[in-house]
């Protein structure tokens, strides 16, 4: 599949502060790629660097298997951080500026406003919009010129559940239309529902990446309770049964090695003399995975 974005060992510092270091991943055509991480993990910096707003201190990146250029930028619609438009201009005038910059047809404006459900508001000043409408306006501007790739930085930031759902539906409809989408977000639910792939950043380091499905299904966790949890954790760590063992509230959470199941764990506990009062298999949610990774 055609590579849309290739990032190799990208690093960026703000003075002595390390924003990102040695971040590498690739995005292929048609993927919905999530950049997930807590605040300050380097998501926005990564997007700002790959959009040419910031210069990298190290590493490289390529769009469409070529160095980033004005031509490749035309093929990308991007929203970085907050929606930035002229508050005294109407939506139509703001999008006219975007269309002129992108050398796009003015017909695209109505089309984009229609997709964002803002056609009726096209003569309203941007400054008079609610936050949800501003976010949808950002999406409309990103869609001008029918770009192949959408780069969205926290597109649902500050939205209520209804606005969240509206923006998510717009993103999903664009993904269904075959566009490649890169989304930075700290909202796990958003990434889980929208993305096909995810890269998790922590303090500027890429700590995991892959298919959302793989990240979830590979990490089935068994939650058990016993009277001596510390001893059980110790025994499990010494065994080759568990990939990972950690304490989770009153439970002992065990991520089993491949090809093992809860029955094997139960047998192991029985043989070691632990009486289990609870055994529950839970497919680890992205949140569990995320929290575990960023701990």
């Amino acid at each position: 599949m055609e590579k849309v974005l290739q990032i190799n060992n990208l690093s960026k510092n703000y003075g002595n502060i390390r924003a990102i270091e040695d971040v590498s991943f690739e995005v292929k055509k048609g993927e919905v790629y999530g950049l997930l991480g807590p605040n300050g993990s380097g998501k926005t910096t990564t997007l700002a660097v790959i959009m040419g707003i910031l210069n990298a201190n190290g590493g490289s990146y390529e769009w469409f298997e070529q160095p980033f250029s004005k031509l490749s930028r035309r093929r990308i619609g991007a929203l970085i951080e907050t929606p930035n438009f002229y508050p005294y201009l109407t939506l139509w005038e703001n999008l006219k500026i975007v269309a002129k910059i992108k050398d796009a047809d003015e017909k695209d404006i109505n089309n984009a406003l229609g997709i964002a459900n803002l056609l009726k508001r096209k003569h309203t000043n941007f400054g008079h919009l609610s936050l949800g409408m501003k976010q949808r306006m950002s999406l409309a501007s990103v869609l001008i010129g029918n770009p192949e790739v959408l780069v969205l930085d926290e597109p649902t930031n500050g939205l209520d559940p209804e606005g969240f759902a509206e923006v998510r539906n717009i993103i999903l409809s664009q993904a269904d239309a075959g566009k490649t989408i890169i989304i930075a977000s700290h909202i796990l639910d958003e990434v889980e529902k929208v993305c096909s792939h995810v890269a998790i950043l922590k303090s500027g380091d890429l700590i995991a990446n892959g298919r959302v499905g793989e990240l979830l299904s590979a990490e089935e966790t068994v939650y058990i309770q016993t009277q001596k949890p510390e001893d059980l954790i110790k025994s499990l760590k010494e065994s080759d049964l568990a990939k990972e063992v950690y304490s989770s509230d009153d439970d002992v959470a065990v991520v089993l090695n491949t090809d093992l199941n809860s029955g094997d764990l139960n047998k192991f506990c029985f043989e070691k003399g632990f009486t289990l009062t609870k055994i529950q298999v839970r497919k680890q949610s992205l949140e569990d995975q995320f929290l575990q990774l960023v701990k």
């Binding site: 959009m51 004005k70 991007a78 930035n84 438009f85 975007v98 910059i101 992108k102």
Partner: peptide, 8 residues
């Protein structure tokens, strides 16, 4: 900044 993102 937005103008640069859009392609200027």
């Amino acid at each position: 900044r937005q103008n640069v993102i859009d392609g200027l």
